[in-house]
């Protein structure tokens, strides 16, 4: 068990500095080779020298200019652009630039479409009867708003003190199933943006009631 405790301490230390640079307590007599400290672009996550191949070059450039002006000069100054061409023929270079521009436009269009789709997607809260006076509430479509379903389920469970879980429905899509009739409360929670339920426009939420069909009929 002692081992576990120590591991926990180290884990906590690692958690405080997310980029594990060098462990100050690590160096034994022969020094370990220190890691190269890396800088990644805040927009496309590539190392900045590769931004030119990404799909968001203009935004990357702006980011680098704002955050690391010296690096910006290094990568995008006139002479850097001159040497960059290197062994590549002029023709290939211009083609590459065209490609990048095209890619950028495409990526932008894609992001826009995704946003539109996100805004149009619906969250459906469905109440269905299990037997006479017991219900289950299913919440469907939360994942379109970048909500971690597991966390949301956990939040519902602790809020309503009932069971709530993430299950796959017959269509193979994931939804949250909460036992008990809590549809109104769920709606309220979404409107008030409680906890993880953030960024859902209230207009996109729909309440549906489903009566169980009598088997005898």
């Amino acid at each position: 068990m002692g081992k576990k405790g120590k591991g926990g301490v180290a884990a906590a230390a690692a958690a405080t500095e997310p980029e594990p640079v060098v462990d100050p307590n690590a160096p034994p007599p022969p020094e370990p080779v220190p890691p190269v400290s890396m800088l990644y672009c805040g927009v496309c996550t590539y190392p900045p020298e590769y931004c030119e191949f990404g799909s968001s070059l203009t935004r990357c450039k702006d980011w680098l200019k704002d955050h690391h002006p010296n690096l910006f000069d290094k990568y995008y100054s006139e002479e850097a652009l001159q040497t960059k061409v290197g062994t590549l023929s002029l023709e290939a270079q211009s083609k590459l630039e065209k490609d990048v521009a095209k890619k950028e436009v495409k990526a932008e269009a894609k992001a826009e479409a995704a946003l539109k789709k996100k805004m149009a997607s619906q969250v459906i809260i469905k109440r269905s009867e299990r037997n006479k006076r017991k219900c289950i509430t299913t919440v469907f479509g939360l994942e379109a708003f970048d909500i971690d379903l597991k966390k949301a389920a956990k939040q519902f469970a602790s809020k309503f003190a009932t069971g709530a879980s993430v299950t796959k429905n017959p269509q193979g899509l994931e939804e949250i199933v909460i036992s008990g009739d809590v549809s109104d409360e769920v709606l309220e929670m979404i409107e008030n943006q409680v906890g993880v339920l953030k960024g859902i426009p209230a207009d996109n939420v729909e309440l549906v009631e489903e009566k169980k069909k009598k088997a005898a009929e």
Partner: peptide
């Protein structure tokens, strides 16, 4: 890779 460097990347104590 040197054993010391690996130790810095992946300490022995941690699984």
């Amino acid at each position: 890779i040197e054993p010391e460097t690996l130790e810095a990347i992946w300490p022995k104590k941690e699984g």
